[in-house]
Design a protein around this nucleic acid. Sequence first.
DNA 1: ATATATATTTAGTCATGCCTAAAAATTTGA
DNA 2: TCAAATTTTTAGGCATGACTAAATATATAT
Lengths: 217, 217
Amino acid sequence: MPTKSEENYIKEIYALEQKCNAEVSTNLIAEKLSAKASSVTDMLKKLSKKDLLIYQKYVGVKLNSKGREIALSVIRKHRLWETFLVEKLNFSWSEVHEIAEQLEHIQSEKLTDQLDSFLNFPTTDPHGEPIPNKNGEFTRIKTICLDELKEGNTGVFVEVRNDSDKFLKFLTKNSIIIGCSIKVIDKEDFDNSITIEIDDKQFSISEGVVQNLYLKR
Amino acid sequence: MPTKSEENYIKEIYALEQKCNAEVSTNLIAEKLSAKASSVTDMLKKLSKKDLLIYQKYVGVKLNSKGREIALSVIRKHRLWETFLVEKLNFSWSEVHEIAEQLEHIQSEKLTDQLDSFLNFPTTDPHGEPIPNKNGEFTRIKTICLDELKEGNTGVFVEVRNDSDKFLKFLTKNSIIIGCSIKVIDKEDFDNSITIEIDDKQFSISEGVVQNLYLKR
DNA sequence: ATATATATTTAGTCATGCCTAAAAATTTGA
DNA sequence: TCAAATTTTTAGGCATGACTAAATATATAT
Ligand SMILES: [Mn+2]
Ligand SMILES: [Mn+2]
Ligand SMILES: [Mn+2]
Ligand SMILES: [Mn+2]
């Protein structure tokens, strides 16, 4: 049984592996977890000794299959709980991440599976992110980042890759909600901001926002 | 914000206070929490310094109003989650205690209150124990212990004061479930066991069992 | 009343998961 | 290519929440 702290490291390493497609570095993990590099080194040694990942000094770290299994289990729980909070307890998508950070560490396979069933085996969470099934399998819907859409084209917003409450409140305020249609009106080369149209209203959003929004297909 | 460990101590001290009507002793707490007396002393000093209870060396300990508030909040969460697991996720009453021991430490007042509302503000949990409301108030149904019932009399079983899975499975196996009618047929003086009748079946149960069963009124 | 038994506290350790500061390895770039 | 910058590891500490063993206070029983 990994501890809460170990689970958080493993989950973050998994996320960074997906993003980087390479060994994950100590400093990257430290930054994401708001910890010091020395603390990360300590933990990597421990997880390596527990045989949950492959750690090479000065090179980086890579989950093995046991580590990946744990990561997927934690992600599954996180996203199921987020779904529960929104669907059953009337939370908004911007309020659920912090609570799910706690709930994802509850240990009971039966609880997870019964929750899954209670929610009718959802495949995506309130942010459009895929929910792994009992076996850790999931199919990510084919998406493209909004920054790849050409001027004049329209796409359906299906996934956001930033769960922070501030960011999600900003999206809500601007009617950028899962399922809405976004048309690209104009792209600014100098700062990569773009002007979009939603429900006949036009406004501009910065590169930092654009990069977190994903469209169907 | 008390830690998980602090919450567990406070919850146990609250339970012992209810049972003993006096200062709670170090050894009693140690026994209940499966810890050593010296560990308990350490924690009592810490909780006293945090102003959650009154600790007198060699005398014992008593929660103050701040400590009581925390205890009631943890108990509220524990019992709401147990109710959720049974009512919504199809768990049996014997499976929920251990999971609720984890869930009771999740920190989000909104979560607790939304859960309460989702469950329609239940007043008792699956074991018949009262659930404190948002303000920590609850009314315990007037009950008598089965051992007080006289031979020939019948009562309705409404509360069990032992959440262990083994004990509850034993009750289920013998059709002793919340709401059932229990008739006292015979009381043995030498070991305080009693013979009861449920659904026209008669059998004997030991003193240890009897003392955990409570009847209406 | 005093010796003995029991309960409780104190002193000293340990594992976990963090930290700072210093050392060592690696990368960068003049 | 080799000095400087950056990254990573090591060394040494700290807080939490446990433990054991020893000391001390309280309760009990002759
Ligand atoms: Mn999230
Ligand atoms: Mn999410
Ligand atoms: Mn319980
Ligand atoms: Mn209960």
